[in-house]
Design a protein around this nucleic acid. Structure first.
Lengths: 192, 192
DNA sequence: ATGAATTATGGTCAAATGACCATAATTTCG
DNA sequence: CGAAATTATGGTCATTTGACCATAATTCAT
């Protein structure tokens, strides 16, 4: 059941079995239907989430109502809205399932308690935020500097596994280009 | 001399005077001419930097050689290239002075030593990375969702103090638009 | 103060992109 | 399986944006 999470912790951290058991016990498993939201924009992000299987996305709405995707979180990843979670303030972004997904959630109080009892979990948390920070910088730079075509090629290179799981309009919303442009790029590439 | 840094620490943290003295003693002051680089792209980021006064920028080069700016660091801010600093790997980005600047630098070993001795400094570091993370997400979302004009207006609203200190081509390089587009936007706004 | 460098603006044209619409293909789920 | 929804593609046209160039204004450093 939570097997994926167990092995994630066992292989990716220095947590011992007792710690892992504690962490797992504090989690609540949850199933999400395709399209179902875990966090609605405007709500407060009260949980930390681990995706056991499936695929979530974090997205927000532009001034004109259009969707723009900050992040795809597939299995064996975490999903939170950091600002909302950290400050317990209304979230600007929505977290929802792209595919039917199985996740584990911890309430913030529960997770904070775990962090106090298990120093190694703090180490993991910091690793995660560091990685996320570095990834965001890379992404920001790519968004600033690359052409639409380069962005798409980067995406394909970086997330070959996600490609067949995502509708093109979501990839476009992630890259910051229109669906039309994305279709054009793919068309041009086929002809080469 | 390092007064700006002292008051930054005293008013922004819970560090006590002894700690502050230790931190200041480990720092090396440095002057940078306009345009002078603190870290060249390709080099390893070996220092943590605090800007006492002046203004730095962190930028990288696109595939075509064009410059794109990730971040402006004015006085009372920190500047590092996180990935390069953390892993001591070659930096993709350059840190250079926009204005003549006075900075304080700590070598990584020295700063790590301070972190071990002064828990409160770790608290500060985590705050900084959290803030930076949240800012980057916001920026990314704005870059994805906003029009060129909205981006410029956001910038003006967010950094009114930086506006008169930056040449327009740098603001354009920060916003991810061409200088021409930025000029057009400003022209249109004047006429309203 | 002054010459050199940088910066800001504008014109013109081509290219890239998006909005809107229609349609076909595919997928989803009861 | 079959109907409904979603997804992918393409056409057309208007708009935005960028590249390239010239010029004026401003700022910089000695």
């Amino acid at each position: 059941m939570t097997t994926g999470f167990d092995t994630y912790l066992r292989t990716g951290t220095n947590l011992n079995d007792a710690d892992i058991e504690q962490i797992v016990l504090a989690a609540k498993p949850l199933s999400l239907q395709r399209g179902e939201a875990l966090l609605q924009h405007g709500q407060i992000c009260r949980h930390k989430t681990f995706i056991v299987n499936g695929l979530l996305r974090i997205y927000g709405f532009g001034a004109d109502g259009s969707e723009h995707i900050l992040y795809f979180a597939p299995e064996n990843n975490w999903a939170v809205e950091p600002e909302s979670y950290h400050q317990q303030s209304p979230s600007q972004f929505t977290i929802a399932a792209v595919e039917r997904s199985e996740v584990l959630v911890w309430t913030k109080p529960d997770f904070d308690r775990l962090l106090q009892h298990i120093p190694e979990l703090t180490v993991l948390s910091e690793q995660l935020i560091n990685r996320s920070h570095i990834n965001n910088r890379q992404r920001l730079f790519s968004t600033l500097s690359a052409t639409a075509e380069e962005k798409y090629e980067d995406f394909v290179r970086s997330f070959p596994d996600l490609l067949p799981r995502l509708p093109l309009h979501m990839i476009a919303a992630y890259l910051g280009i229109s669906l039309k442009t994305l279709t054009r790029i793919r068309h041009a590439q086929v002809r080469r």
